[in-house]
Design a protein around this nucleic acid. Structure first.
Lengths: 176, 176
DNA sequence: AATGAAATCGACCAGCA
DNA sequence: TGCTGGTCGATTTCATT
């Protein structure tokens, strides 16, 4: 994020419309054969393969992962926790990594404003959640925490490409 | 989540230690050959394949996806927004789906407490963010919103299995 | 539930537009 | 650079234990 580009700048990589459509497919489901993709995009198998490799090497695709359903592992309890730290310089980085290392913390954001960190955690039961919050409070530099329980996850995994607006899309393919 | 199980209940599926180790591998990186997995786990290729299929059919693995790096698409701006709704019965479901449908909203949680929804959104620039917030406010039933900008994402994609604690693991394999 | 062999599919290379 | 076609190696499937 240490870029000197203007606010309306779009992205470093030169993607064309085909790349974007390919990303839309595999961002949703990579468990498809090259055949299906080539049928969808009107290209040969090797062409798809070639483009996928290019996207991986460029870091646009930075991994392929199996999405594990948390509820099938009994991880039914989700909480969103706001963490504020004592305001002494240099603390935040340390606090951040300590918080991120706590088992059950799935996401951790460092934010502007009165609250300093927002964590999203997932556990199996109340006692685990209690222990998790205790660990957060015990991190040196943490001032106070405030948690909310999640009753429903209406939208979860970051399906980055699927949530692109038309405008965002245009910014990517227009000026490559 | 409409289960009548006690709080300490662990999970519906009968997983053994091998399944869990396999999940740990592919949850991190599915772009590996069966050879590597069979070497790691001491099983034949076909056995790995058999277990992977079983996990997919059981819904433990509910998909294989390519992880697209948002920054390579110029999606550098992330916000966490708290949304409260006017308290009239039956509003919440409608508001939830409307909010989830807004382009750029990657995650949406329905929570207990004074705030009703928490959204995590990702866009390319300030004007897109402004429009996104406007759309949220325009949703019928939304009372007010409060947004915080994310300065750093210390932990992002829900690597569910990777963040399991020892206790969570034990709950899964012990009593299958 | 796991194995090995057979059929199928994907990865890579050389060459071409 | 982006793509094609063919080859080899990998994966999927299936009969068998």
């Amino acid at each position: 994020m240490s870029e000197s580009y203007p606010d309306e700048w779009e992205g470093p990589d030169d993607l064309d419309e085909t790349d974007l459509r390919l990303l839309e497919c595999v961002d949703e489901d990579f468990d498809v054969s090259l055949k299906e993709l080539s049928a969808e995009l009107g290209l040969s198998n090797s062409a798809i393969h070639y483009r996928l490799n290019k996207l991986k090497e460029a870091g646009v695709i930075d991994g392929v992962t199996a999405d594990v359903d948390p509820t099938s592992l009994g991880l039914n309890m989700v909480a969103i926790t706001e963490v504020s730290v004592v305001h002494e310089p240099g603390y935040s980085e340390h606090v951040g990594t300590d918080l991120a290392d706590i088992d059950g913390v799935e996401q951790l954001y460092y934010t502007m404003g009165d609250v300093d960190f927002v964590a999203i955690s997932r556990v199996q039961n109340r006692s685990q959640m209690n222990r998790l919050i205790e660990k957060m409070v015990a991190v040196e530099g943490v001032d106070e925490t405030s948690s909310r329980f999640v009753m429903d996850e209406l939208k979860t995994a970051p399906r980055t490409v699927a949530t692109l607006s038309e405008g965002m899309r245009e910014n990517l393919v227009e000026d490559e």
